[in-house]
């Protein structure tokens, strides 16, 4: 997490230096690096969660409430069932989201893209 943070700072500073040299959009090695760094924020966030959740064990509230004492009276089957359902739901939704995102990024920008339709405002606004 800390390493990724430093890498992100480094990426920002390098871009700044390249910008002063007017080559930030043309330096291929930098652009490749940006592609590699794309999931860095996501990974750093996940590692942050792992550090807090694992690091505070065996406490839910550090020094005050033990994890064993903070169990809810929900049955085991319900917890297992809901965990699997949420997992499947997230994988499907992240999958579709990633697919849409990649489809949009693959397409180079054009000048003749359709903008907002002014007629829509008349159909859905107050008269």
């Amino acid at each position: 997490m800390v390493g990724l943070g430093l890498l992100m700072v480094g990426q920002g500073l390098t871009s700044l230096v390249l910008r002063w040299g007017h080559s930030v959009y043309t330096a291929r090695w930098m652009l490749r690096g940006c592609v590699v760094m794309a999931p860095a924020g996501f990974l750093a966030m996940l590692s942050g969660w792992v550090v807090t959740e694992v690091g505070r064990q065996p406490f839910t509230i550090y020094g005050l409430l033990r994890t064993a004492d903070s169990l809810s009276s929900v049955s085991r089957q319900q917890v297992i069932g809901s965990t699997w359902t949420i997992l499947v739901f997230y994988l499907v939704i992240f999958g579709i989201g990633l697919w849409v995102l990649l489809r949009i990024t693959r397409e180079p920008p054009r000048t003749d893209e359709a903008g907002p339709q002014p007629t829509l405002a008349d159909e859905t606004g107050q008269s």
Partner: peptide, 17 residues
């Protein structure tokens, strides 16, 4: 929350959907 665990989980999944 324990009494209504399943309805709440289903509600949140439905809202995400």
């Amino acid at each position: 929350l324990p009494a209504l665990y399943l309805p709440f989980i289903l509600m949140f999944l439905a809202l995400i959907l």
